[in-house]
Design a protein around this nucleic acid. Structure first.
Lengths: 142, 142
DNA sequence: GTGAATGCAAACTCTTTGCATGACT
DNA sequence: AGTCATGCAAAGAGTTTGCATTCAC
């Protein structure tokens, strides 16, 4: 069990949520996933493992996890929202316009620029998303 | 008529599109708008002016304008897509979690960081979106 | 006159909600 | 036992599509 899974389950218990099967399997799946998943992808993956979870329960689980800041929402503008475990190693995503695949990257200079920008604006900046769009190596025309 | 409106109408004609009423009024409205609008907001605004446009026509107009890169799509993750004229002065958006308002900003350092990052990745980066989330001055608790 | 553009309504996708059933404490 | 959690089905919201009519060329 990943550190995140452990942390998430503990937090849920501490916050007074009961340990139902659906929410726990969602947490377990997210914890062993590398990349971000949509609610439907999570449901399908769990059903493929024989877990009979309802799509609505997955959405409800994700809503709770989001409120507790245990997951990070990612809306890449494709009409579907993806979720991934919220971990320290901060990163962003790049979406392939060819195959729809998503990769992640980190960039120190980018983070610094955003941080400095936040200081400059008279807003209270809480979160930020940087979505790049382009073509992955496999989809780049020679 | 704004320079953008003029440019957009000319481009549409050049590309072989007919000058229908719906698409033209959408272009005219966008041209005199400062901030980004959703399809429904555009439809409502036009109807408030007495223009009887259908929501579907607005979506179709926006689709064409997007394909011709005459408008910029902005999905701030609120379940609604906004559009604004694509102009040279490149900028990004910050969404208020209190009132839902959207403001825009420009930042040279941020653009440079994204550009450099693009060079580093083995992807072909075509566009990027940087959405900040936080609280606007009016919604920031004292 | 021909074919694109439009507007309405229906379809579609993603997400949320109502409600009865089943599970955790 | 008392609630909370779950799953199904239905409802909602935003967007897209089918189709007959209207309009631009």
């Amino acid at each position: 069990m990943s550190a995140w899974t452990d942390h998430a389950l503990t937090t849920l218990e501490t916050e007074g949520y009961r340990a139902g099967a659906a929410r726990r399997t969602v947490v377990e799946l997210l914890g062993r996933q590398h990349c971000c998943l949509s609610a439907k992808e999570i449901t399908d993956a769990l059903r493929a493992e024989g877990r009979e979870v309802g799509l609505a329960s997955v959405y409800r689980a994700l809503e709770v996890l989001d409120q507790l800041k245990l997951v990070q929402r990612l809306d890449a503008g494709e009409g579907v929202v993806r979720y991934e475990p919220a971990v320290e190693d901060h990163h962003h995503h790049i979406v392939c316009e060819g195959c729809g695949g998503v990769a992640s990257y980190e960039d120190e200079a980018l983070e610094r620029a955003i941080h400095d920008l936040g200081e400059r604006l008279s807003w209270t900046v809480e979160t930020h998303d940087v979505v790049l769009r382009g073509r992955c190596p496999s989809c780049t025309p020679a």
